[in-house]
Design a protein around this nucleic acid. Structure first.
Lengths: 226, 226
DNA sequence: CGACTGGTTGACGAGGGTCAAGGACCGTGG
DNA sequence: CCACGGTCCTTGACCCTCGTCAACCAGTCG
Protein backbone atom coordinates (compact mmCIF):
# COMPACT_ATOMS: atom_id res chain seq x y z
CA UNK A 1 0.00 0.00 0.00
CA UNK A 2 3.02 2.29 -0.03
CA UNK A 3 3.63 4.10 3.20
CA UNK A 4 6.57 6.43 3.63
CA UNK A 5 9.71 4.75 4.78
CA UNK A 6 12.40 6.67 6.67
CA UNK A 7 10.94 10.16 6.77
CA UNK A 8 13.13 13.07 7.69
CA UNK A 9 11.06 15.67 9.35
CA UNK A 10 12.41 18.70 7.64
CA UNK A 11 12.10 22.07 9.29
CA UNK A 12 9.10 23.23 7.30
CA UNK A 13 10.36 26.37 5.73
CA UNK A 14 7.80 28.98 4.85
CA UNK A 15 7.01 28.80 1.19
CA UNK A 16 7.21 31.87 -1.02
CA UNK A 17 3.95 33.00 -2.52
CA UNK A 18 3.14 32.31 -6.13
CA UNK A 19 4.26 32.97 -8.75
CA UNK A 20 7.74 32.82 -7.31
CA UNK A 21 10.03 29.85 -7.57
CA UNK A 22 8.63 26.72 -5.96
CA UNK A 23 10.70 24.48 -3.74
CA UNK A 24 12.08 21.30 -5.18
CA UNK A 25 13.63 18.29 -3.50
CA UNK A 26 17.25 19.25 -3.07
CA UNK A 27 20.31 17.10 -2.95
CA UNK A 28 21.09 17.83 0.66
CA UNK A 29 17.69 16.85 1.95
CA UNK A 30 17.32 13.62 0.06
CA UNK A 31 20.77 12.36 0.75
CA UNK A 32 19.92 9.45 2.97
CA UNK A 33 16.31 8.91 2.23
CA UNK A 34 13.90 8.04 -0.52
CA UNK A 35 10.95 10.02 0.82
CA UNK A 36 10.85 13.73 1.52
CA UNK A 37 7.94 15.75 2.95
CA UNK A 38 7.38 19.03 1.13
CA UNK A 39 5.08 22.02 1.42
CA UNK A 40 3.77 24.12 -1.42
CA UNK A 41 1.99 27.44 -1.24
CA UNK A 42 -1.20 28.39 -3.07
CA UNK A 43 -0.68 28.43 -6.85
CA UNK A 44 2.93 27.35 -6.63
CA UNK A 45 4.31 24.91 -9.13
CA UNK A 46 5.16 21.40 -7.99
CA UNK A 47 6.64 20.46 -11.32
CA UNK A 48 6.34 21.80 -14.85
CA UNK A 49 5.82 20.28 -18.26
CA UNK A 50 9.18 19.55 -19.83
CA UNK A 51 10.99 19.41 -16.52
CA UNK A 52 13.07 16.39 -15.51
CA UNK A 53 10.98 13.84 -13.64
CA UNK A 54 12.42 11.87 -10.78
CA UNK A 55 9.87 11.92 -8.00
CA UNK A 56 6.46 10.53 -7.35
CA UNK A 57 4.27 12.55 -5.02
CA UNK A 58 1.66 11.46 -2.53
CA UNK A 59 -0.66 14.11 -1.18
CA UNK A 60 -0.95 14.49 2.58
CA UNK A 61 -3.26 17.49 2.52
CA UNK A 62 -4.53 20.01 0.00
CA UNK A 63 -5.57 19.71 -3.63
CA UNK A 64 -3.37 19.61 -6.72
CA UNK A 65 -4.25 20.31 -10.34
CA UNK A 66 -2.43 18.55 -13.16
CA UNK A 67 -2.61 20.32 -16.49
CA UNK A 68 -1.27 20.85 -19.98
CA UNK A 69 -0.90 24.16 -21.77
CA UNK A 70 -1.01 25.18 -25.41
CA UNK A 71 1.45 27.84 -26.58
CA UNK A 72 -1.30 30.45 -26.70
CA UNK A 73 -2.31 29.82 -23.11
CA UNK A 74 -5.30 27.54 -23.52
CA UNK A 75 -5.19 25.08 -20.66
CA UNK A 76 -6.63 21.65 -20.02
CA UNK A 77 -6.64 20.28 -16.50
CA UNK A 78 -6.48 16.51 -16.75
CA UNK A 79 -7.10 15.76 -13.10
CA UNK A 80 -7.55 17.13 -9.61
CA UNK A 81 -5.72 15.17 -6.93
CA UNK A 82 -6.94 14.92 -3.35
CA UNK A 83 -5.20 13.72 -0.18
CA UNK A 84 -4.07 10.11 -0.56
CA UNK A 85 -3.71 10.41 -4.33
CA UNK A 86 -0.38 9.96 -6.05
CA UNK A 87 0.86 11.75 -9.14
CA UNK A 88 4.03 12.47 -11.05
CA UNK A 89 4.64 9.07 -12.71
CA UNK A 90 6.37 9.28 -16.05
CA UNK A 91 7.48 6.70 -18.56
CA UNK A 92 10.61 8.54 -19.53
CA UNK A 93 12.37 11.04 -17.29
CA UNK A 94 10.51 14.14 -18.42
CA UNK A 95 7.22 15.46 -17.08
CA UNK A 96 4.69 15.88 -19.85
CA UNK A 97 2.18 17.65 -17.62
CA UNK A 98 2.59 20.26 -14.93
CA UNK A 99 1.29 20.13 -11.38
CA UNK A 100 0.33 23.04 -9.15
CA UNK A 101 -0.96 23.46 -5.64
CA UNK A 102 -4.48 24.90 -5.65
CA UNK A 103 -4.27 25.83 -1.99
CA UNK A 104 -1.55 25.08 0.55
CA UNK A 105 -0.42 21.51 -0.09
CA UNK A 106 1.62 18.97 1.84
CA UNK A 107 3.07 16.07 -0.10
CA UNK A 108 5.60 13.33 0.35
CA UNK A 109 8.03 12.99 -2.54
CA UNK A 110 9.40 9.54 -3.32
CA UNK A 111 12.43 9.05 -5.47
CA UNK A 112 11.25 7.20 -8.54
CA UNK A 113 14.41 5.15 -9.01
CA UNK A 114 14.26 3.76 -5.49
CA UNK A 115 10.71 2.61 -5.99
CA UNK A 116 11.49 0.50 -9.03
CA UNK A 117 14.86 -0.80 -7.87
CA UNK A 118 15.47 -4.40 -7.00
CA UNK A 119 15.26 -3.70 -3.29
CA UNK A 120 11.66 -2.58 -3.49
CA UNK A 121 9.07 -5.29 -3.41
CA UNK A 122 7.40 -6.29 -6.63
CA UNK A 123 4.13 -5.69 -4.84
CA UNK A 124 4.91 -2.02 -5.13
CA UNK A 125 5.15 -2.30 -8.90
CA UNK A 126 1.76 -3.99 -8.87
CA UNK A 127 0.46 -1.16 -6.72
CA UNK A 128 1.82 1.36 -9.18
CA UNK A 129 0.38 -0.55 -12.12
CA UNK A 130 -2.98 -0.56 -10.39
CA UNK A 131 -2.94 3.16 -9.73
CA UNK A 132 -1.86 3.86 -13.29
CA UNK A 133 -4.63 1.70 -14.72
CA UNK A 134 -7.16 3.43 -12.51
CA UNK A 135 -5.84 6.77 -13.71
CA UNK A 136 -6.14 5.60 -17.29
CA UNK A 137 -9.74 4.57 -16.74
CA UNK A 138 -10.66 7.89 -15.17
CA UNK A 139 -8.98 9.72 -18.02
CA UNK A 140 -10.92 7.67 -20.57
CA UNK A 141 -14.13 8.57 -18.77
CA UNK A 142 -13.07 12.18 -18.98
CA UNK A 143 -12.53 11.83 -22.73
CA UNK A 144 -16.18 10.92 -23.08
CA UNK A 145 -17.14 13.96 -21.04
CA UNK A 146 -15.00 16.36 -23.08
CA UNK A 147 -15.79 14.84 -26.43
CA UNK A 148 -19.50 14.25 -26.13
CA UNK A 149 -21.24 15.90 -23.18
CA UNK A 150 -22.80 19.34 -23.07
CA UNK A 151 -22.04 21.99 -20.49
CA UNK A 152 -24.78 21.03 -18.04
CA UNK A 153 -23.91 17.34 -18.20
CA UNK A 154 -20.27 18.17 -17.61
CA UNK A 155 -20.91 20.21 -14.50
CA UNK A 156 -23.30 17.59 -13.12
CA UNK A 157 -20.68 14.89 -13.68
CA UNK A 158 -18.07 17.04 -11.99
CA UNK A 159 -20.20 17.59 -8.90
CA UNK A 160 -21.00 13.89 -8.65
CA UNK A 161 -17.33 13.05 -8.97
CA UNK A 162 -16.46 15.48 -6.20
CA UNK A 163 -19.19 14.23 -3.89
CA UNK A 164 -17.99 10.68 -4.41
CA UNK A 165 -14.33 11.43 -3.96
CA UNK A 166 -14.63 13.67 -0.93
CA UNK A 167 -17.19 11.39 0.66
CA UNK A 168 -19.29 14.42 1.55
CA UNK A 169 -22.90 13.79 0.68
CA UNK A 170 -24.25 17.21 1.47
CA UNK A 171 -22.43 20.49 1.75
CA UNK A 172 -19.66 19.73 -0.67
CA UNK A 173 -16.68 22.05 -0.45
CA UNK A 174 -14.96 22.90 -3.72
CA UNK A 175 -11.28 23.61 -3.28
CA UNK A 176 -10.84 25.15 -6.71
CA UNK A 177 -12.04 28.38 -8.37
CA UNK A 178 -14.45 28.47 -11.32
CA UNK A 179 -11.58 28.98 -13.70
CA UNK A 180 -10.04 25.63 -12.74
CA UNK A 181 -13.37 23.86 -12.98
CA UNK A 182 -13.78 25.37 -16.43
CA UNK A 183 -10.36 24.20 -17.56
CA UNK A 184 -11.11 20.74 -16.22
CA UNK A 185 -14.44 20.56 -18.04
CA UNK A 186 -13.30 22.16 -21.29
CA UNK A 187 -15.55 25.21 -20.80
CA UNK A 188 -15.17 28.87 -19.88
CA UNK A 189 -15.65 30.11 -16.35
CA UNK A 190 -18.71 32.05 -17.45
CA UNK A 191 -20.37 28.93 -18.76
CA UNK A 192 -19.52 27.08 -15.56
CA UNK A 193 -21.10 29.88 -13.57
CA UNK A 194 -24.23 29.79 -15.74
CA UNK A 195 -24.55 26.03 -15.32
CA UNK A 196 -24.25 26.40 -11.55
CA UNK A 197 -27.09 28.90 -11.75
CA UNK A 198 -29.12 26.53 -13.87
CA UNK A 199 -28.73 23.67 -11.40
CA UNK A 200 -29.61 26.07 -8.60
CA UNK A 201 -32.73 27.35 -10.39
CA UNK A 202 -33.80 23.76 -11.02
CA UNK A 203 -33.66 23.15 -7.27
CA UNK A 204 -31.03 20.46 -7.65
CA UNK A 205 -28.28 22.20 -5.72
CA UNK A 206 -28.05 25.04 -3.23
CA UNK A 207 -25.14 27.47 -3.32
CA UNK A 208 -24.23 28.32 0.26
CA UNK A 209 -21.38 30.25 -1.26
CA UNK A 210 -19.45 29.93 -4.49
CA UNK A 211 -17.31 27.17 -3.02
CA UNK A 212 -19.89 25.54 -0.76
CA UNK A 213 -22.53 23.47 -2.52
CA UNK A 214 -25.37 21.40 -1.11
CA UNK A 215 -26.78 18.68 -3.31
CA UNK A 216 -30.53 18.71 -2.76
CA UNK A 217 -31.54 16.11 -5.31
CA UNK A 218 -28.83 13.58 -6.01
CA UNK A 219 -30.94 11.31 -8.26
CA UNK A 220 -31.85 14.23 -10.48
CA UNK A 221 -28.22 15.34 -10.57
CA UNK A 222 -27.15 11.88 -11.63
CA UNK A 223 -29.80 11.86 -14.33
CA UNK A 224 -28.38 15.10 -15.73
CA UNK A 225 -24.87 13.72 -15.98
CA UNK A 226 -26.29 11.27 -18.58
CA UNK B 1 9.07 -7.96 -24.81
CA UNK B 2 6.14 -10.31 -24.63
CA UNK B 3 6.08 -12.82 -27.39
CA UNK B 4 3.45 -15.53 -27.57
CA UNK B 5 4.41 -18.68 -25.79
CA UNK B 6 2.92 -21.99 -26.79
CA UNK B 7 0.62 -21.03 -29.62
CA UNK B 8 -1.94 -23.45 -30.86
CA UNK B 9 -2.49 -22.83 -34.49
CA UNK B 10 -6.23 -22.98 -34.56
CA UNK B 11 -7.99 -23.83 -37.79
CA UNK B 12 -8.93 -20.31 -38.72
CA UNK B 13 -12.64 -20.53 -38.90
CA UNK B 14 -14.42 -18.09 -41.13
CA UNK B 15 -15.79 -15.27 -39.05
CA UNK B 16 -19.40 -14.25 -39.29
CA UNK B 17 -20.04 -10.80 -40.67
CA UNK B 18 -21.01 -7.97 -38.41
CA UNK B 19 -23.18 -7.37 -36.54
CA UNK B 20 -23.46 -11.02 -35.63
CA UNK B 21 -21.97 -12.55 -32.51
CA UNK B 22 -18.18 -12.28 -32.39
CA UNK B 23 -15.95 -15.19 -31.45
CA UNK B 24 -14.55 -15.29 -27.93
CA UNK B 25 -11.80 -17.43 -26.50
CA UNK B 26 -13.47 -20.65 -25.52
CA UNK B 27 -12.56 -23.15 -22.87
CA UNK B 28 -11.61 -25.89 -25.24
CA UNK B 29 -9.12 -23.82 -27.16
CA UNK B 30 -7.33 -22.30 -24.22
CA UNK B 31 -7.02 -25.45 -22.23
CA UNK B 32 -3.27 -25.88 -22.41
CA UNK B 33 -2.14 -22.47 -23.42
CA UNK B 34 -2.09 -18.85 -22.31
CA UNK B 35 -2.10 -17.31 -25.77
CA UNK B 36 -4.72 -17.80 -28.45
CA UNK B 37 -4.73 -16.36 -31.98
CA UNK B 38 -8.10 -14.96 -32.99
CA UNK B 39 -9.68 -13.39 -36.05
CA UNK B 40 -12.36 -10.76 -36.09
CA UNK B 41 -14.40 -9.57 -39.02
CA UNK B 42 -15.06 -5.96 -39.98
CA UNK B 43 -17.14 -4.17 -37.33
CA UNK B 44 -17.28 -7.18 -35.03
CA UNK B 45 -16.99 -6.72 -31.32
CA UNK B 46 -13.83 -7.93 -29.58
CA UNK B 47 -15.19 -7.14 -26.15
CA UNK B 48 -17.92 -4.88 -24.82
CA UNK B 49 -18.23 -2.39 -22.00
CA UNK B 50 -19.45 -4.17 -18.89
CA UNK B 51 -18.30 -7.57 -20.06
CA UNK B 52 -16.01 -9.71 -17.90
CA UNK B 53 -12.36 -9.01 -18.63
CA UNK B 54 -9.80 -11.78 -18.63
CA UNK B 55 -7.67 -11.35 -21.71
CA UNK B 56 -5.14 -8.91 -23.00
CA UNK B 57 -4.93 -8.59 -26.77
CA UNK B 58 -2.00 -7.88 -29.01
CA UNK B 59 -2.74 -6.88 -32.59
CA UNK B 60 -1.10 -8.87 -35.36
CA UNK B 61 -2.84 -7.10 -38.22
CA UNK B 62 -5.72 -4.71 -38.70
CA UNK B 63 -6.94 -1.71 -36.70
CA UNK B 64 -9.08 -1.68 -33.56
CA UNK B 65 -11.17 1.12 -32.08
CA UNK B 66 -11.71 1.36 -28.33
CA UNK B 67 -14.74 3.38 -27.32
CA UNK B 68 -17.32 4.31 -24.73
CA UNK B 69 -21.01 4.91 -25.33
CA UNK B 70 -23.61 7.10 -23.67
CA UNK B 71 -27.11 5.68 -23.26
CA UNK B 72 -28.42 7.86 -26.09
CA UNK B 73 -25.81 6.60 -28.51
CA UNK B 74 -23.23 9.35 -28.38
CA UNK B 75 -19.85 7.69 -28.73
CA UNK B 76 -16.31 8.65 -27.86
CA UNK B 77 -13.44 6.66 -29.31
CA UNK B 78 -10.57 6.83 -26.85
CA UNK B 79 -7.96 5.23 -29.06
CA UNK B 80 -7.18 3.48 -32.32
CA UNK B 81 -4.85 0.53 -31.99
CA UNK B 82 -2.49 -0.56 -34.75
CA UNK B 83 -0.50 -3.78 -35.24
CA UNK B 84 1.86 -4.30 -32.31
CA UNK B 85 -0.36 -2.42 -29.89
CA UNK B 86 -1.87 -4.09 -26.88
CA UNK B 87 -5.24 -3.38 -25.34
CA UNK B 88 -7.79 -4.84 -22.96
CA UNK B 89 -6.05 -4.23 -19.60
CA UNK B 90 -8.42 -3.68 -16.71
CA UNK B 91 -7.93 -2.99 -13.04
CA UNK B 92 -10.90 -5.03 -11.94
CA UNK B 93 -12.35 -7.87 -13.94
CA UNK B 94 -14.82 -5.85 -15.98
CA UNK B 95 -14.21 -4.02 -19.24
CA UNK B 96 -15.13 -0.36 -18.96
CA UNK B 97 -14.65 0.29 -22.66
CA UNK B 98 -15.55 -1.74 -25.72
CA UNK B 99 -13.27 -2.75 -28.58
CA UNK B 100 -14.24 -3.41 -32.17
CA UNK B 101 -12.43 -4.42 -35.32
CA UNK B 102 -12.48 -1.63 -37.90
CA UNK B 103 -11.51 -4.00 -40.69
CA UNK B 104 -10.49 -7.65 -40.56
CA UNK B 105 -8.28 -8.04 -37.49
CA UNK B 106 -5.91 -10.73 -36.25
CA UNK B 107 -4.97 -10.63 -32.58
CA UNK B 108 -3.33 -12.83 -30.02
CA UNK B 109 -5.25 -13.09 -26.77
CA UNK B 110 -3.29 -13.62 -23.57
CA UNK B 111 -4.92 -14.79 -20.40
CA UNK B 112 -4.57 -11.98 -17.91
CA UNK B 113 -4.11 -14.19 -14.89
CA UNK B 114 -1.21 -16.06 -16.44
CA UNK B 115 0.60 -12.85 -17.18
CA UNK B 116 0.57 -11.62 -13.62
CA UNK B 117 1.14 -14.98 -11.96
CA UNK B 118 4.33 -15.86 -10.15
CA UNK B 119 5.61 -17.84 -13.10
CA UNK B 120 5.75 -14.81 -15.34
CA UNK B 121 8.81 -12.65 -15.06
CA UNK B 122 8.54 -9.37 -13.20
CA UNK B 123 9.95 -7.78 -16.32
CA UNK B 124 6.58 -8.39 -17.90
CA UNK B 125 4.90 -6.37 -15.18
CA UNK B 126 7.33 -3.57 -15.90
CA UNK B 127 6.52 -3.90 -19.57
CA UNK B 128 2.84 -3.66 -18.78
CA UNK B 129 3.38 -0.69 -16.48
CA UNK B 130 5.29 1.03 -19.25
CA UNK B 131 2.60 0.44 -21.82
CA UNK B 132 -0.07 1.62 -19.42
CA UNK B 133 1.84 4.80 -18.59
CA UNK B 134 2.34 5.49 -22.28
CA UNK B 135 -1.37 4.97 -22.81
CA UNK B 136 -2.10 7.38 -19.98
CA UNK B 137 0.13 10.00 -21.49
CA UNK B 138 -1.50 9.69 -24.90
CA UNK B 139 -4.92 9.91 -23.31
CA UNK B 140 -3.91 13.06 -21.44
CA UNK B 141 -2.74 14.58 -24.70
CA UNK B 142 -6.10 13.68 -26.15
CA UNK B 143 -7.86 15.46 -23.28
CA UNK B 144 -6.15 18.66 -24.34
CA UNK B 145 -7.29 18.10 -27.89
CA UNK B 146 -10.91 17.45 -26.93
CA UNK B 147 -11.11 20.14 -24.30
CA UNK B 148 -9.32 22.99 -25.97
CA UNK B 149 -8.65 22.59 -29.68
CA UNK B 150 -10.88 23.65 -32.55
CA UNK B 151 -11.99 21.40 -35.38
CA UNK B 152 -9.13 22.22 -37.74
CA UNK B 153 -6.50 21.76 -35.06
CA UNK B 154 -8.03 18.43 -34.12
CA UNK B 155 -7.92 17.03 -37.62
CA UNK B 156 -4.37 18.30 -38.15
CA UNK B 157 -3.28 16.63 -34.92
CA UNK B 158 -4.99 13.42 -35.97
CA UNK B 159 -3.24 13.31 -39.32
CA UNK B 160 0.13 13.98 -37.70
CA UNK B 161 -0.50 11.22 -35.20
CA UNK B 162 -1.36 8.78 -37.96
CA UNK B 163 1.65 9.70 -40.07
CA UNK B 164 3.89 9.21 -37.07
CA UNK B 165 2.35 5.92 -35.98
CA UNK B 166 2.13 4.30 -39.38
CA UNK B 167 5.57 5.55 -40.34
CA UNK B 168 4.24 6.58 -43.73
CA UNK B 169 5.44 10.03 -44.56
CA UNK B 170 3.48 10.52 -47.76
CA UNK B 171 0.40 8.74 -48.95
CA UNK B 172 -1.06 7.95 -45.57
CA UNK B 173 -3.76 5.31 -45.60
CA UNK B 174 -6.61 5.80 -43.15
CA UNK B 175 -8.11 2.53 -42.03
CA UNK B 176 -11.21 4.11 -40.51
CA UNK B 177 -14.26 5.90 -41.93
CA UNK B 178 -15.05 9.57 -41.30
CA UNK B 179 -17.53 8.61 -38.64
CA UNK B 180 -14.83 6.97 -36.53
CA UNK B 181 -12.47 9.88 -36.99
CA UNK B 182 -15.27 12.16 -35.85
CA UNK B 183 -15.97 10.10 -32.76
CA UNK B 184 -12.27 10.10 -31.97
CA UNK B 185 -11.98 13.87 -32.35
CA UNK B 186 -15.25 14.78 -30.64
CA UNK B 187 -16.77 16.15 -33.86
CA UNK B 188 -19.39 15.11 -36.40
CA UNK B 189 -18.50 13.39 -39.62
CA UNK B 190 -19.68 16.42 -41.57
CA UNK B 191 -17.27 18.69 -39.73
CA UNK B 192 -14.43 16.22 -40.28
CA UNK B 193 -15.24 16.22 -43.98
CA UNK B 194 -15.27 20.01 -44.08
CA UNK B 195 -11.91 20.21 -42.30
CA UNK B 196 -10.42 17.74 -44.80
CA UNK B 197 -11.67 20.04 -47.55
CA UNK B 198 -10.16 23.04 -45.80
CA UNK B 199 -6.74 21.41 -45.52
CA UNK B 200 -7.00 20.39 -49.16
CA UNK B 201 -7.98 23.90 -50.30
CA UNK B 202 -5.05 25.29 -48.33
CA UNK B 203 -2.73 23.00 -50.30
CA UNK B 204 -1.56 21.23 -47.16
CA UNK B 205 -2.86 17.79 -48.07
CA UNK B 206 -3.99 16.02 -51.20
CA UNK B 207 -6.91 13.61 -51.13
CA UNK B 208 -6.09 10.74 -53.46
CA UNK B 209 -9.31 9.23 -52.22
CA UNK B 210 -11.25 9.59 -49.00
CA UNK B 211 -8.97 7.10 -47.27
CA UNK B 212 -5.72 7.93 -49.03
CA UNK B 213 -4.10 11.20 -47.99
CA UNK B 214 -0.83 12.78 -49.11
CA UNK B 215 0.72 15.33 -46.81
CA UNK B 216 2.14 18.03 -49.05
CA UNK B 217 3.30 20.46 -46.39
CA UNK B 218 4.15 18.79 -43.10
CA UNK B 219 5.54 21.91 -41.38
CA UNK B 220 2.34 23.81 -42.11
CA UNK B 221 0.27 20.88 -40.91
CA UNK B 222 2.21 20.77 -37.66
CA UNK B 223 1.71 24.48 -37.23
CA UNK B 224 -2.06 24.02 -37.54
CA UNK B 225 -2.15 21.40 -34.81
CA UNK B 226 -1.05 24.18 -32.42
C1' DC C 1 -11.95 52.04 3.53
C1' DG C 2 -9.85 50.62 -0.73
C1' DA C 3 -7.74 47.16 -3.54
C1' DC C 4 -7.82 42.67 -5.20
C1' DT C 5 -9.37 38.27 -6.42
C1' DG C 6 -13.15 35.66 -7.64
C1' DG C 7 -17.98 35.18 -9.22
C1' DT C 8 -22.34 36.46 -11.65
C1' DT C 9 -25.04 38.10 -15.36
C1' DG C 10 -26.20 40.16 -19.87
C1' DA C 11 -25.71 41.01 -25.02
C1' DC C 12 -23.94 39.36 -28.99
C1' DG C 13 -21.63 36.43 -32.41
C1' DA C 14 -19.13 32.46 -34.22
C1' DG C 15 -18.00 27.70 -34.58
C1' DG C 16 -19.68 23.60 -35.17
C1' DG C 17 -24.06 20.59 -35.02
C1' DT C 18 -28.31 19.21 -37.54
C1' DC C 19 -30.86 18.18 -41.46
C1' DA C 20 -31.03 17.20 -46.14
C1' DA C 21 -29.67 16.21 -50.88
C1' DG C 22 -26.69 14.27 -53.93
C1' DG C 23 -22.23 12.12 -55.52
C1' DA C 24 -18.46 8.51 -55.47
C1' DC C 25 -17.07 4.01 -54.94
C1' DC C 26 -17.39 -0.34 -54.17
C1' DG C 27 -18.96 -5.77 -54.70
C1' DT C 28 -22.55 -8.65 -56.50
C1' DG C 29 -25.49 -10.58 -59.79
C1' DG C 30 -28.14 -10.51 -64.00
C1' DC D 1 -20.44 -5.60 -69.17
C1' DC D 2 -23.47 -2.89 -66.90
C1' DA D 3 -27.09 -2.17 -63.49
C1' DC D 4 -28.09 -2.16 -58.81
C1' DG D 5 -27.71 -1.65 -53.84
C1' DG D 6 -25.16 -0.40 -50.03
C1' DT D 7 -21.80 2.19 -47.69
C1' DC D 8 -19.28 6.13 -47.37
C1' DC D 9 -18.38 10.89 -48.36
C1' DT D 10 -19.26 15.76 -49.59
C1' DT D 11 -21.59 20.03 -49.62
C1' DG D 12 -25.18 23.46 -48.56
C1' DA D 13 -28.57 25.94 -45.50
C1' DC D 14 -29.90 26.86 -41.13
C1' DC D 15 -29.67 27.09 -36.16
C1' DC D 16 -28.12 26.47 -31.34
C1' DT D 17 -24.87 26.11 -27.80
C1' DC D 18 -21.28 28.09 -25.85
C1' DG D 19 -17.42 31.59 -26.19
C1' DT D 20 -16.38 36.57 -26.03
C1' DC D 21 -16.65 41.00 -24.17
C1' DA D 22 -18.18 43.83 -20.70
C1' DA D 23 -20.19 45.54 -16.51
C1' DC D 24 -21.12 44.81 -11.97
C1' DC D 25 -21.25 42.38 -7.46
C1' DA D 26 -19.28 39.84 -3.24
C1' DG D 27 -15.95 38.56 -0.03
C1' DT D 28 -11.38 39.19 2.02
C1' DC D 29 -7.22 41.16 3.54
C1' DG D 30 -4.35 44.88 4.33
Amino acid sequence: MLTPLPVMDLPQTQMPLAPSVPPKPREETEFHTSSVPLNFARNSEIFAEGEAAGYVYKIVSGVVRVSKLLPDGRRQISAFHLPGDMFGFEVDDVHHVSAEAIGPVKVIAYKWQNLLSATSSSSFVHELLNRTMIGLRQTQDHLLLLGRKNALERLAAFLIEMVRRTGSEQSLHLAMPRHDIADYLGLTLETVSRMFAELKDAGIIKLESARQVSVLDMPKLEAMAT
